[in-house]
Design a protein around this nucleic acid. Structure first.
Lengths: 226, 226
DNA sequence: CGGACGCTTGAGATCCCTCAAATGTCGTGG
DNA sequence: CCACGACATTTGAGGGATCTCAAGCGTCCG
């Protein structure tokens, strides 16, 4: 009788989108034995900066932010992760960032040491992780440009353009104003003022304080992002 | 008669420090056949942002900066690379950054496609590249914190602390004031003023305008870096 | 000697932050 | 159904850090 994948893998919503998509059914077996599903509630912390780094995980549903902070408590979000994304730092004893759930988040968690052993055995998994890491690095470099050189207006426009946009231009903001501020290296007040400016200049259409907006003038938004 | 490594590999100054250090003599053979040494003069560009991405390379001696730029020409240095570091973006058709030599730089260059084939065959090489990429990502995240949340003073202090320091506290700056400014998301004037302030408050000792300085009070510099 | 270059210094402007208060929304409980 | 508080967001006023523009200084090199 052949061993088979657990039901959670067969049913997995992100089987193809996540790292696992690089593996066939047989190859996935080892990894599947390590994984366990866990829902972490909004606001809870998955890994703490400077602490042990015991896990890696795939995000099934939900969202996480990766935070770095200064000694006096200012925070900078250094990455946003969504459904299908991978979180974790293989080969590192200590976590370099704090990972916090932005919403109730369903994770498929692997012990880091076990995950590393599967990397040893499954070159396709390692390749997929390498490609994802390279992509994360490119994105982190782009954010350095944004944080180092762009105005508040341009940062917000850049952020809005990075979000999935419906065909009618609708955007559902995945995060609150304060979290946008933490991501863009600004204060919440500045973010709010920039929203107001974009609204009153007709670039976007939105309710005051709302999480849903519509991009009216994409070209103007793209210009603003410079 | 056995094939053997080319003389440039046998003599290589960074054989152990660079990516190649992950490979034994036999395993290095394939890669060594691809590599060729090239000295690129200070100021010349190795890859252009948005252009073809034909090469990967190890830095033997010298230094490179990785630049991203806005449409209107403002520049942000998103990485500094030195002897032993790897440069290149495997699996990418288009380069995301401009790589420019900060000094006359001796590279060991591989065609990207050939390098990718060796990655397919040499798991140790791929592992070493993965670990380096993860390290670069951590560093890029730390720079996001610096760029998003730290004052000019703290940025410069952080930069100085990141440089190799002799036992008497001596630092030889590898780059000019303008390049420091590009790296720290500041202007050259602000960088210069911060140097002056650090000097007049006795934290560092340096000649006006000089490339060599001495850290007098490490603790004060560490405090300033917050 | 003269010019180019890199760095520093100064003055003023600007953008964003800080502090403070008002507004709006939502859920809870009376 | 309404009062209330908690919370997120907006708005306002003022200040400060950094940028911009301009000039000066020192060194190196032809």
């Amino acid at each position: 009788m052949e061993e088979s994948l657990p039901q959670r893998c067969l049913d997995c919503l992100v089987r193809d989108k996540a790292l696992c998509g690089s593996l066939g059914d047989k190859q996935l077996l080892d990894l599947s034995l390590l994984g366990r599903r866990k829902v972490v509630p909004k606001g809870s912390v998955v890994t703490w900066e400077g602490d042990d780094n015991p896990i890696c995980a795939n995000i099934v549903t939900g969202a996480l932010k990766l935070q770095a902070s200064t000694a006096d408590g200012r925070e900078q979000t250094v990455g946003l992760l969504f459904s299908g994304d991978f979180i974790g730092e293989p080969f590192e004893e200590e976590s370099a960032v704090t990972a916090e759930a932005l919403a109730d988040t369903d994770l498929c968690i692997f012990p880091r040491s076990g995950f590393e052993r599967v990397l040893d055995d499954q070159p396709q998994l390692e390749r997929a992780l390498l490609e994802r890491t390279l992509k994360s690095l490119r994105e982190a470099r782009e954010r350095q440009l944004v944080l180092g050189r762009k105005s508040a207006r341009a940062r917000l426009a850049w952020f809005l353009l990075s979000l999935p946009r419906g065909c009618d231009g609708t955007i559902d903001l995945p995060i609150a104003r304060q979290e946008i501020a933490d991501y863009l290296g600004l204060t919440i007040e500045t973010v709010s003022r920039q929203f107001t400016d974009l609204r009153s200049s007709g670039v976007i259409d939105a309710e005051r304080g709302g999480r849903r907006l519509r991009v009216v003038d994409v070209t103007a938004l793209q210009d603003a992002a410079e």
